[in-house]
């Protein structure tokens, strides 16, 4: 899920021909034939440039094949983050997971820098967007578990960027306060939420650490015949509890509705979680890798944090009005009820 202070306004800084040719010239991919910002993804048309407000993306056809060109988002393009992310991406691809292969530039790096922005070129993997099918949810959960397991075998020679759930929520609260739509009423809600987070949203350091994706949401995953064909955007990955990804996935896959537009995939946020579906999701994850009792104990807190983050982000992006903010303080009770209904400890 998007992190920290992403820019709210879209900057119209597009790929021009000079930039495209410079990128292609830095890789052994032949001559540039065509650049596409409109691609057919499964059953829909996607305008790549409108899919995100943080980085430029484009499908590139060259005489040697089709590739995906992407600008690394500005908020995670420091060398440490890039090195960690690329180490994990390469490791997972080599381990046989559906992660697009990063191409190496002529100077031996997995990225190139042009005019202060960093770019990657990866293989292009076609696939459908998420449609909310039960079979898709099953493979998503299992793939996530496989990523965590395979990632834990990676020997990182670079330090992990660090980002904790309480930090993420706190930064979203601060961003929400800066919005022109932040009325005195919303401001009071944010004050209460902040106090609650400082008191209760505390994650124990004893939780085991894994390399986590950090943005495990439907529009970073492609499918074919309900199987995951590609997982994109490891830009936010870091060492953290795997509950970071699990909490985010449960909210993103089960509490958000999808619009299907390329500029706004999220239609709305529901304030309930389907018990049967989320139970199956966790079962499928655990079919590959069991969560410890300590992890299970702290999963609801991660779901709560991810839910808050998602609602705050919607408010920041003006996708939601004040109404949903008024209900944000009721989420701990909703998560608690959901977790009790899930009755998960008894099924282990």
């Amino acid at each position: 899920m998007p992190l920290k202070s992403k820019p709210i306004e879209l900057e119209f800084d597009l790929f021009d021909e000079t930039l495209l040719n410079t990128v292609v010239a830095n890789y052994d991919v032949g001559n540039l034939l065509e650049a596409n910002s409109v691609v057919l993804e499964g059953d829909r048309i996607v305008i790549l440039g409108e899919k995100t407000q943080t980085s430029r993306k484009m499908a590139v056809e060259t005489s040697k094949g089709r590739y995906f060109l992407k600008q690394i988002p500005w908020y995670c393009d420091d060398l440490q983050s890039v090195a960690f992310s690329h180490k994990l991406t390469i490791h997972l691809a080599q381990a046989g997971l559906p992660v697009p292969r990063l191409l190496t530039s002529s100077s031996g790096t997995t990225w190139i820098e042009i005019k202060g922005s960093k770019f990657t070129l990866t293989e292009y993997i076609a696939g459908n967007s998420y449609q909310g099918k039960t079979a898709e949810n099953q493979t998503i959960a299992q793939t996530l578990a496989k990523i965590h397991l395979a990632g834990s075998q990676c020997n990182f020679d670079v330090q992990s960027p660090h980002e904790s759930l309480p930090q993420i929520v706190a930064s979203h609260i601060n961003l929400a306060r800066q919005q022109p739509t932040c009325t005195p009423g919303v401001s009071r809600i944010l004050d209460t939420l902040e106090a609650y987070c400082q008191q209760s949203l505390i994650i124990p350091e004893s939780l085991p650490l894994f390399p986590v994706h950090g943005d495990f949401i439907p529009w970073n995953i492609a499918f074919h015949n309900n199987e995951v064909t590609a997982i994109y955007d490891f830009d936010n990955c870091c060492m953290d509890s795997r509950l970071h990804d699990l909490g985010e996935a449960i909210v993103a896959f089960f509490a958000l509705d999808y619009l299907g537009q390329s500029s706004q995939l999220r239609k709305g946020i529901r304030l309930n979680l389907p018990v049967k579906e989320t139970h199956a999701f966790l079962q499928n994850y655990q079919a590959i890798s069991r969560l410890s009792n300590l992890e299970l104990k702290w999963l609801p807190v991660h779901v709560l944090g991810a839910w808050w983050e998602s609602i705050l982000l919607s408010f920041i992006r003006c996708e939601q009005d004040e109404h949903i903010m008024q209900q944000i303080l009721g989420l701990p009770g909703i998560v608690s009820d959901w977790w009790n209904q899930l009755n998960f400890t008894h099924t282990l």
Binding site: E34, I45, I47, E50
Partner: peptide, 20 residues
Amino acid sequence: LGGIAQRETALVWSDPVIQS
């Protein structure tokens, strides 16, 4: 392409992609 992006989204096209 109307309806694919939000109505308030500015659709900005760089030269290399117009033809494609």
